[in-house]
Simulated assay, not measured.
Amino acid sequence: MGALRAGLIGLGMMGRHHARVLASLDGVELVAVADPGGDPHSVASGRPVLGSVEELIDAGIDYCVVAVPTASHEPVGLALAAAGVHALIEKPLAHDVAASTALVDAFDKAGLVGAVGHIERFNSALQSLRKRLEQGDLGAIYQVATRRQGPFPARIADVGVVKDLATHDIDLSAWVTQQSFVTVSAQTAHRSGREHEDLVAATCRLSGGAVTSHLVNWLSPFKERLVVVTGEKGAYVANTLTADLTFYANGEVSTTWDAIARFRGVSEGNTIRYAIAKPEPLRTEHEHFRNAVLGLPSDIVTLSQGRETVRVAEAMIASAKGSMIVSL
């Protein structure tokens, strides 16, 4: 079998990274790229720069990466499904649950592989964390706390921080714990003068009883990507900026110092910073999607999972607007 013929639509900030990986991915030929605004980052490297998804389909592609603004995910994705083209759609899957459902149904009906680009799942720190949680290394999971903060992204205009950034934390929290969200409570604020929210603080409960908290904004002058999972045997801290994973164990050494011994909580134990391989998450994501298209073993974020993440994000926004707890 020859190389898979891939296309890319959307040549903005994420599009240029997708182009780089697609151009060097084994078993894949990037045949053309598309963007109505042209190629601002010069990623085409001699390939045709087309103006629409229809032109990209006419180029004869097997699959397509969709990196257009969120509001355009639905029409572009539906066009690809109608043409029999597999698609990896950047997160969030779509601008709302209804549009997400339309995409899920279209790809299911056509028997095509559809995936969502929740890249954090492919971060080696979180991959390692999920395996350790699955093995029971932490025991019962009590809490997941995430912090995702950074500078204002002028390129994002069609959604707020909940659907653009908090969807990372929604998806990864459900994925690493293998639990679904059942209640959501959130507060948001608008500080940049735009239509959509700029920050969110959310507290949620998962189906297995774990409590989660998510602090997300794009108003900070520094960048932070942190996941802390606390449980029966201690706590894991994953830094997805550096792909580092550290385990802080609950202490098992008794103390004879009365002033400390009277505290009946956990005590300090050993700390382990794991040595793990750190491949680029975007390349790992692309390798899994390529394998899924080929019918090989793979681990992709399905469209149904992407829709569930959008559903939780909409619950956060609704909770903030109505000052209420939303049950899912």
Rank of each mutant, 00 (worst) to 15 (best):
T242Q: 12
F263I: 10
K278Q: 14
Y236V: 01
D158F: 04
F247W: 12
S180D: 09
A157Y: 08
I9F: 01
N250R: 15
V312D: 03
A99M: 10
R147E: 00
N123V: 07
N270Q: 13
V228I: 11
G38A: 06
V104W: 01
L88S: 07
I141F: 05
V65A: 07
T183M: 10
I317E: 13
K321I: 10
C64S: 15
L129A: 09
I300P: 05
D108H: 12
G77C: 06
T309K: 03
V227T: 15
V53T: 14
D137K: 14
L226V: 05
G77R: 08
G27S: 07
V182M: 09
K321Q: 11
T284N: 05
Q305P: 01
N239P: 05
P75G: 07
G139N: 08
S213Y: 00
N239Q: 10
L294N: 08
L30S: 04
I89A: 03
P297G: 04
A157S: 14
D171M: 06
A318L: 10
A82L: 06
A99Q: 12
L296S: 13
E285C: 14
V200L: 02
R191W: 06
A98E: 15
P75F: 02
L296W: 11
P221N: 08
G265P: 09
D164W: 12
S327M: 03
L56A: 11
H18N: 04
Q305V: 05
Q143E: 13
I9V: 10
T302A: 12
S207A: 11
G139L: 06
G295M: 03
G15R: 00
E224A: 09
V116F: 02
L78W: 05
A81E: 08
G139P: 08
K131S: 15
D108S: 13
I156W: 11
V116K: 05
E134P: 05
F152S: 14
A318S: 12
I61K: 10
L22M: 08
E54N: 11
D137Y: 09
R148Q: 14
N291T: 06
A19W: 00
A94Y: 00
N250Y: 01
F122H: 15
A275I: 09
G2Y: 03
V53E: 06
I61N: 08
A313V: 03
R130K: 15
R262D: 13
G117K: 02
G27Q: 05
L126E: 06
T309E: 05
D198G: 11
A102Y: 01
S323I: 01
Y63M: 15
H190W: 14
R194H: 10
D35P: 03
V21P: 01
